[in-house]
């Protein structure tokens, strides 16, 4: 497994832990309401689990396992995918913290960063989706 996939996948595990922790607090609060502010954790819960866990795990495994190139760098432009990794995680954190610091621009900027990240990732991996013999 390449180093970049290790980073993607271990980060996804961290988000899995954080997302499950926030989800557990929200669900427990439904059973025994102890703090109304718990509901403000919901955007972070969803962001951590959908983008942080599932999307990031998928990106890490795809970078690892898709067919490699026979000539040049075997997994294509690695710098581009490293950029996608950094930008994705910046975006996730911005969206997740927004409810706590009341800067609405954080959510929009975070979503834009997440989209840029995915575009970079798609651009970098597009040519690796191919028949093995090609």
């Amino acid at each position: 497994m390449p180093r970049l996939s290790v980073w993607f996948i271990r980060c996804s595990f961290i988000y899995l832990f954080l997302g499950f922790t926030l989800g557990g607090i929200i669900l427990a609060n439904k059973g025994y309401p102890f703090a109304p502010w718990v509901w403000s954790l919901l955007p972070a819960h969803m962001e951590f689990l959908l983008l942080g866990w599932m999307v990031q795990l998928t990106m890490g495994v795809a970078f690892w396992i898709l067919p490699r190139f026979r000539s040049g760098p075997p997994r294509g432009n690695i710098d581009l995918v490293w950029s996608a990794f950094v930008i994705l995680n910046t975006g996730i954190v911005m969206v997740a913290v927004q409810p706590f610091i009341s800067m609405t621009w954080l959510t929009q900027t975070g979503r834009i960063l997440e989209t840029i990240s995915v575009l970079l990732f798609v651009f970098a991996l597009w040519q690796r989706v191919k028949a093995i013999e090609v």
Partner: peptide, 21 residues
């Protein structure tokens, strides 16, 4: 009763994630 079950469910689901990681 349902409150207790929800808290128990929250703990179990959290533990599943911790054990997987």
């Amino acid at each position: 009763l349902f409150g207790v079950l929800l808290v128990l469910s929250a703990i179990l689901q959290w533990l599943s994630g911790v054990a997987f990681v």
